[in-house]
């Protein structure tokens, strides 16, 4: 069990851990932004935007993440888009997770009675104001629990990036394997690290849920 603390292993493990955090955090940010925009598209009065949102969700929610990584890592360079492996990983993860965020937001928006938006519009509020000040704040409460599932899944999904040249947490397993450590011990530590991340994410969401419950 003590392998983590010998032979410079901790530094290797720690860097993998940091990469996973970094990759997940940046992807989470872009996924939120993207998901928000897509959800706004899906409820907007403009048919082209609605179709775009629907199309995006269909494609990215139904494609296996590994396939998406293949698409990004091998197809984009052919179109002369050359970026770091890390950036490619962020793109794949955000596009994928953004589709889920969009759907959670949209179903949350649908829990808010239509009359709320009608009242806002009849007072002269625009689409953005109506969505931002009336609908989304009321959708937030029903949105948080499914949103927390998405962002607990994200760090775990980010492990796929390991197979595409991003030295994240899960990929450190290969290095330990080459050093001849028993796989069970390696996996124990890696699992523990993912658990720590998941715990932190769900704790953050619990705090948010509590705060929303008070503010009413």
């Amino acid at each position: 069990m003590g392998i983590l603390f010998e032979d410079g292993n901790f530094s290797l493990f720690y860097h993998g851990f940091l990469q996973t955090i970094e990759l997940s955090a940046i992807s989470a940010l872009f996924a939120l932004l993207l998901g928000g925009v897509l959800a706004a598209f899906r409820v907007s009065p403009v048919p082209v935007l609605r179709a775009f949102g629907t199309g995006w969700v269909m494609v990215f929610r139904n494609t296996p993440l590994t396939l998406l990584f293949f698409g990004v890592v091998f197809a984009l360079p052919r179109l002369d888009v050359h970026l770091s492996s890390f950036t490619f990983a962020v793109m794949a993860l955000s596009a994928y997770t953004g589709a889920f965020v969009c759907e959670v937001l949209r179903s949350g928006i649908n829990t808010v009675p239509l009359g709320q938006a009608e009242a806002a519009r009849s007072l002269g509020m625009g689409f953005g104001q109506t969505l931002g000040t009336i609908v989304l704040p009321q959708a937030a409460r029903s949105v948080l629990p499914p949103m927390s599932s998405i962002f607990i899944a994200l760090p775990r999904n980010s492990a796929v990036a390991g197979a595409f040249n991003v030295p994240e947490l899960f990929s450190t397993q290969k290095a330990f394997d080459e050093k001849g450590y028993p796989i069970f011990v390696t996996f124990f530590w890696i699992a523990l690290a993912y658990l720590l991340v998941s715990f932190t994410v769900s704790a953050v969401f619990r705090v948010l849920e509590k705060q929303l419950a008070v503010a009413r």
Binding site: P113, G115, E118, A119, S122, L123, G124, Q129, I134
Partner: peptide
């Protein structure tokens, strides 16, 4: 629309805002 007031059968007050805020909001935003 801001010049045309509308009152609905089901009131449609903003559920997450206080009564005062309901009346203040559009004055400030619109």
């Amino acid at each position: 629309r801001a010049d045309v007031g509308m009152v609905f059968q089901s009131f449609n007050l903003f559920a997450h805002k206080t009564v005062l805020e309901n009346v203040v909001l559009a004055q400030v935003k619109v």
